[in-house]
Amino acid sequence: MKSLFKSKPKTPADLVRRTRELLIYANGECTSSREDKRVEKMAELSTLMKDLKTILYGNGESEPVPEACAQLTQEFFRVDTLRPLIICLPKLSLDSRTDAAQVVANLQRQQVHSRLIASEYLEANKDLLDLMIPGYENPDLALHYGAMVRECIRHQSVARYVLESDHMKKFFHYIKLPNFEIASDASVTFKELMTRHKSTVAEFLTKNYNWFFPEYNSTLLGSDNYVTKRQGIKLLGDMLLDRSNSAVMMRYVCSKENLRILMILLRDPSNCISIEAFHVFKLFVANQNKPPEIVSILVANRNKLLRFFVDFKMDKENEQFEADKAQVVKQIEALEQIAAPEQIVVSEQITAPEQIAAPEPRDQE
Score class of each variant (00 low, 15 high):
Arg150Gly: 08
Ser96Thr: 15
Glu192Asn: 12
Arg196Leu: 11
Val201Asn: 06
Ser93Phe: 08
Ser93Arg: 11
Val112Met: 06
Leu94Tyr: 12
Tyr136Asp: 03
Asn179Arg: 07
Ile153Met: 04
Tyr174Glu: 02
Arg160Phe: 04
Leu131Thr: 11
Arg150Lys: 07
Arg109Gln: 11
Lys170His: 09
Tyr136Leu: 03
Glu203Tyr: 11
Tyr209Lys: 12
Val201Gly: 01
Phe171Met: 02
Pro134Asp: 07
Leu122Trp: 00
Cys152Gln: 06
Ala118Thr: 07
Asn179Ile: 04
Asp99Met: 08
Asn138Glu: 15
Glu192Asp: 15
Lys169Trp: 07
Gln156Val: 10
Leu122Cys: 05
Arg196Gln: 12
Gly146His: 01
Lys126Thr: 12
Ser157His: 08
Val149Pro: 00
His144Leu: 04
Ile153Tyr: 00
Ala101Asp: 09
Ala159Phe: 00
Arg160Gly: 08
Ser187Asp: 04
Leu107Arg: 02
Gln156His: 05
Leu107Tyr: 05
Asn125Phe: 04
Phe180Lys: 14
Gln111Ile: 07
Asn106Leu: 09
Phe172Tyr: 05
Leu143Glu: 01
Trp211Cys: 07
Tyr121Trp: 07
Ser165Lys: 09
Leu92Ser: 14
Thr206Phe: 07
Glu120Gln: 15
Ala202Ser: 15
Gly135Asn: 06
Tyr161Gly: 01
Arg97Trp: 09
Thr189Ser: 13
Leu163Pro: 03
